[in-house]
Design a protein around this nucleic acid. Structure first.
Lengths: 155, 155
DNA sequence: GTGGATGCAAAGTGTTTGCATGGAC
DNA sequence: GTCCATGCAAACACTTTGCATCCAC
C-alpha cells in the first residue's frame, strides 16, 4: 500500500548542487554546513539540533549555528522539519533531495525509537478535502505512535 | 470516506460524570475547572492555554492553573492534546467524551484558521504497520495544512 | 479542619537574536 | 578586503515548579 506514488518525479540534483545554489543566494559553503549535511544524509531518522551537535562534537559547533544552518537549509528546500510532538524540532533530508523520499514515522511510546514508514494516506483523501473546503496546496503531517516489541515485554 | 468508523462505540457518560470521577481520584470540583471544561465544550476547535485564559478573562484564572487543570483533565482522559506543529499545545474534548469525536484538522498556512475534518486514514493501514514492525497499540496524529479560500486571494 | 487547588514568582527548556570576531570568496 | 558565518551571551516564548494562601469537602 503506497498510494502516494509521485506521478512526475523531481529531477535528481547532483549531491553537491546545494553548494552552488547556496552560493547563488550569497551563502557560503563552510565546514560546519558541510558536516551538518553529511550527518543528516547518513542518519536513518530525523535528528534534533542537539543530536546533531553531539554527532559533530569533536569539531564543536555552536547550537545557535546549527539552528541557523538548519533554517537556511530549510529555506533552500534541502532539509525538512519533522514534528514528533515532543516539543523539539527534528530535521531530515527533504523528500525531493538525493537520499530523501516521502515517508512518515512510527515512534515507540516507550523508548522513543523511530522507524521510517513508506505507507501514506490515499492521495484522493487530500483531493477531496481540497474540493470540500476550498483549500489549496494541501500537505499533511502523519505520525504513528505505538509500543515496539521490546517495550511490550517491559510493560 | 470515513474509514475510521468505531465498531463498538464507547458508552456515553453523562456530561457531569467527570465530577464524580475527579472526586473519586481525590480531586476537587472547583469553579476554574468547571469553566475551563465549559469553554472547551463550546469551542469548535482546539484551544491553547492562552486562548482559554482569554476566554475566561473576566473571572481571571492563572495560566499555571490552566496548565495544571489541563494536565489533570488529560490524565482523566477528558481532554486530549493536539499538536499543530507551531510549538504550542492545544486542547480539545477527548474523542470518547460527550461532545467529542475522532477527527483531524486542516490548518490554513496563511491565517491559521482551523477546520475540523472527519476523514481519516484506512484502519487497515495501521493494522498492517503493526504486523510489519511488531508494534502494538498504534495511534496516529494526522494534520493537514493548506491555503484557505481567503488566503488564496491575498497571495 | 484537612488536603488539594490557586496565584504569584521563579526556574526550566528549546529556540532566536545581537554583536564582535573569524573565515569564504 | 568585503560580507557572510560563527561563537558567546542575552533575550524569548511556552511550560513547569515551589511555596504560601485559599477553598471544596
Amino acid at each position: 500500500m503506497k498510494p502516494h506514488s509521485k506521478t512526475a518525479p523531481h529531477p535528481r540534483p547532483h549531491p553537491d548542487d546545494w553548494k552552488q545554489s547556496l552560493r547563488r543566494r550569497s551563502g557560503r559553503v563552510t565546514r560546519s554546513r558541510q558536516v551538518i549535511l553529511e550527518i543528516l544524509r547518513h542518519k536513518p531518522c530525523p535528528l534534533t539540533p542537539q543530536e546533531i551537535a553531539q554527532a559533530l562534537a569533536p569539531k564543536h559547533c555552536d547550537l545557535a549555528t546549527i539552528y541557523r544552518t538548519l533554517a537556511r537549509f530549510e529555506e533552500l528546500g534541502m532539509v525538512q522539519r519533522v514534528d514528533l510532538g515532543d516539543g523539539r524540532a527534528r530535521f531530515e533530508i527533504a523528500e525531493d533531495q538525493p537520499g530523501g523520499r516521502h515517508h512518515h514515522h512510527l515512534v515507540c511510546r516507550g523508548c522513543s525509537r523511530i522507524v521510517e514508514i513508506d505507507d501514506c494516506i490515499p492521495a484522493e483523501l487530500e483531493a477531496q478535502m481540497a474540493r470540500q473546503h476550498g483549500f489549496q496546496q494541501i500537505t499533511h503531517k502523519l505520525e504513528f505512535f505505538g509500543l515496539c516489541p521490546k517495550c511490550q515485554v517491559r510493560s
